[in-house]
Design a protein around this nucleic acid. Structure first.
Length: 260
DNA sequence: TTAGGGTTAG
């Protein structure tokens, strides 16, 4: 290009760096990044975002974070694209506190992004930290951050995962989230119902378990045999309930004989 | 001019 009097610009370098990142030639990409600096060509937001995304995808988040510091010293403001790459990478490496920190920075600048909340919440679920995951779901509700047509499916899955995860450690909060899902129109998966019912049976809160079975059926989910037997066993273990059930049965038999 | 990610039935 040079011999033809057509010198590479920042766009030329950015395109090349992007391409090298796509083929995971990260060291070469960094090499070009250095080279353009030496030539006095100033990297812009696109250049940084490309290289940082490549580094994150290649499991080199720390280097990407260094670039974040460098770009701010050059008075370049990261935007949603930049943060998105970083948060994705940090979550993949289970560096959740750093991911949360970046999300906070985005919030300060007014970026609301349901997809990135999703990444972080999924990260907490993978780490079995369901309370934290639920906190972020609450935050989404309070902040009116709702998923769009494309992220909706992911959001449904995340809510279900968190409810199931909470069943183990905090059934009451799990139930609270379950209720909030219903009011927000987020469909509860059959397996999630099973988790809730099982957890309340174990806790001995049979009324709640029965209520959930009822709502499950109303939603058109047919409880499977395991769920039925879990609930029945729960009731059965209580002697008084059994006696009452037997009385009702006697009544029913009497009535059916009378009506015939 | 150059950067990411997110859905799904047919």
């Amino acid at each position: 290009m040079g011999t033809k009097g057509c010198l590479p610009s920042v766009v030329t370098y950015t395109s090349l760096i992007h391409g090298l990142c796509l083929s995971n030639d990260l060291d070469e990409a960094i090499g070009l990044f250095e080279e353009m600096k030496e030539k006095g060509i100033v990297a812009n937001l696109y250049t940084y975002s490309s290289l940082m995304d490549g580094l994150c995808k290649g499991g080199r988040c720390s280097q990407a974070m260094e670039l974040l510091e460098i770009m701010t010293t050059e008075h370049l403001q990261p935007n949603t694209v930049t943060y998105s790459s970083l948060i994705n990478g940090l979550c993949k490496e289970q560096r959740l506190s750093e991911a949360v920190e970046l999300l906070d920075r985005m919030k300060l600048r007014g970026f609301k992004h349901a997809g990135l909340y999703g990444k972080i919440i999924t990260g907490f679920c993978v780490a079995q930290k369901f309370q934290e995951a639920a906190n972020f779901l609450d935050e989404m509700v309070f902040g009116r951050i709702s998923p769009n047509r494309l992220t909706w499916g992911l959001h449904v899955r995340i809510n279900n995962t968190v409810v199931r995860g909470l069943c183990e450690t905090d059934p009451n909060r799990s139930f609270q989230l379950y209720l909030s899902m219903r009011t927000r129109g987020i469909s509860v998966e059959a397996e999630t119902f099973d988790f809730l019912i099982d957890s309340f049976c174990k806790k001995g809160d049979l009324h709640k378990a029965a209520r959930i079975v009822e709502e499950m059926v109303l939603d058109g989910c047919i409880p499977n045999e395991t769920t039925w037997s879990t609930v029945l066993r729960g009731f059965w273990d209580r002697k008084k309930v059994r006696e009452a059930a037997e009385l009702i049965q006697v009544e029913l038999v009497k009535k059916s004989i009378e009506s015939h």
